[in-house]
Write a protein that binds this DNA or RNA. Structure first.
Lengths: 362, 362
DNA sequence: TTGAAAGCGCTAACAG
DNA sequence: CTGTTAGCGCTTTCAA
């Protein structure tokens, strides 16, 4: 093809195109094949009530025979009702949650294109009663609820109730596995803790000494699981390092700074710190104050702006991350998929355990 | 909301929903505001020829004033012509390329939903002339060409020619930055090499010795860049380790195995191997044969099935990866976006430099 | 150059 | 329980 372009300013679209391959079956095709009306097929496909079982079978048979797959573009276009989705995020200052919020706003156009309407509410996640109540009231107004939950019986009960009422529930970042939630969007936190341990152990190498673990609260399932995974690998593969008792900083920088400051004084042979929760600015401050920022191996979670700069200046050695944007979009796709029948690619929805060093920062 | 569910088997859809917020401007709205017909607005929006400049201005003005954004669902539904896309991948046996193929097939349904028709061709990438010719003939039949290219003047010229003819060109995995290609989908390979170096240096710790670098061919831009990044960081931050001269294995396992076998014999003080290309099975075999699989720090690229098991059995210590599925979908989204005006989220399209240890394998 | 009109494949009232 | 009928917001002939 020899560059035979004329002076058409709009030739961007001049490239040839063709109709798609083998004509795809449509709703009318299925209706005809099943010997029923359009609306009936729609009822069956969308599991709407009021269709005779015999009819259902006949329709499904036709669907199978014709390899029918609904066209999501058409479905979306015809949708009169919008799908409403509520986000329930922890209150308080937390950079990771801020990031999530940003991504929600960044995806507003996408949501509009997909007939999705989202609202964000914040609640004190550490209070099971408050959280359960907030979930119930948020769920009342929407079709799907996305929640960063606390794994607690009261919360589990609220989830099950909301699911029983016909809503979709998705847990985000921190799961409630015993509940009837439809999806969990987040990483495997035990594996994340193991990953942190291996980085810690290998970075320390022959340099033996004490290693501290700091979490927000072991009442948070994600933190607890990370600590567990970390402990497993440290014990089984890097046993030469003594693990200090777990510190709980409530994800609060000031509080954490005090705790770690004391720790550094009382344990001059401290060689590593693993932070399973938030409040990392406090740990960094304490390390700097003690003049040990470059010396102690520091592994933490979530690539917040603070973590970025710690990585760059050498205070942190590695960050384990879960991509907030990916999680956000995944939750959105899972929510819409339940309405539009759009196929879900499992491998696209799996949230990766990202490792960041100063060299592969995005 | 107290769990007041009745026995309706289809209550999944019983949750309330509402119409979307503030009515969005539509094409007719714009047409009316600009005082022109529907088709004219469409012509302007899609940069089709044959519209008076004055009219173009009036339409664009209305678009701006109404904050008009086309509805991608409607656009797709109405599309009579399908968009055709050709993939040009390296011939030969390469697990990573196999992975890409698999993902292409896995996304056939998605492509159909988006009126995309894709074909895959394989070609000897190492032959610039052959590659350029293959690109030209593949491009003739399609609207966009996705190619894993070799950075060579002949190839650059072919790309520029194809772009000039109105087609979209996307480079995949290996870029041709001096060309006029519309997008590069892949990682920053210099940064990837730096990342590998830091892992190598920190994993080695105080264990000084020689480090070998093996690539497929430095004629491949991605390999060359990785080696460069690796060399930078090893020299500047881990200078105690001597870097051996670069080995080129042509991405061939057998050949690589021989080279590394010899290397291990002649350098008993070898402590690390960085593999910037393919053929890792050969390196693993040589390490095992020498009884040094657990001993030498081995960092490689691409999480192929072979790499997975090497990581699990301890032969490999870390793998730098680029997500083939992500790259595939990204290329697809970029290709469609040029037709449907769908917004592109830069952060979603950025391909990450993934680090895998045995603990965070997907 | 421009406009009118006929769909694309589905959903959602509204009748039977 | 089931079918008919309008659209949804674009693209694309076909005329003017």
């Amino acid at each position: 093809m020899m560059c035979a372009h004329h002076n058409d300013p709009a030739m961007t679209r001049s490239a040839p195109a063709h109709e798609g391959p083998g004509t795809r079956a449509t709703l009318p095709d299925v209706a005809r094949a099943a010997g029923v009306g359009l609306a009936t097929v729609d009822r069956v496909l969308n599991q709407r009530p009021g269709v005779h079982p015999r009819t259902i079978d006949r329709v499904m048979e036709a669907v199978r025979r014709l390899h029918y797959r609904p066209d999501p573009a058409a479905a979306r276009l015809a949708q009169k009702q919008w799908h409403r989705i509520a986000w329930l995020l922890p209150s308080g200052t937390n950079s990771f949650v801020d990031l999530l919020r940003q991504h929600i706003d960044g995806n507003r156009a996408w949501m509009e294109d997909h007939r999705l309407h989202g609202t964000v509410a914040r609640v004190d996640v550490f209070e099971p009663g408050t959280l359960a109540q907030a979930m119930r009231s948020a769920a009342e107004q929407v079709d799907t609820l996305v929640v960063m939950a606390l794994d607690h019986p009261q919360v589990r009960e609220a989830i099950d109730e909301i699911v029983a009422a016909g809503r979709t529930v998705i847990t985000l970042v921190s799961d409630v596995p015993s509940s009837r939630r439809h999806h969990y969007v987040g990483i495997d936190n035990v594996a994340a803790g193991r990953t942190a341990a291996r980085l810690m152990g290998r970075f320390l190498g022959a340099r033996h000494g004490k290693v501290a673990v700091v979490a927000g609260s072991v009442a948070l399932r994600d933190h607890a699981e990370r600590c567990m995974g970390f402990g497993q690998i440290m014990a089984s593969e890097f046993g030469a390092h003594a693990l200090l008792p777990l510190l709980e900083g409530k994800d609060d920088s000031a509080r954490t700074e005090g705790m770690v400051g004391k720790l550094l004084k009382s344990h001059p042979d401290l060689v590593g710190i693993y932070s399973a929760g938030a409040g990392n600015r406090g740990i960094a401050a304490a390390l700097h104050a003690a003049g040990r920022a470059q010396d102690v191996v520091f592994v933490a979670h979530e690539l917040t702006p603070a973590a970025r700069s710690c990585l760059l200046d050498g205070t942190m050695d590695a960050v384990i991350n879960q991509d907030a944007g990916h999680e956000l979009r995944s939750a959105l796709r899972l929510a819409t998929a339940r309405v539009t029948h759009e196929p879900v690619h499992a491998d696209q929805e799996r949230i990766r355990i990202d490792i960041y060093l100063k060299d592969n920062l995005p």
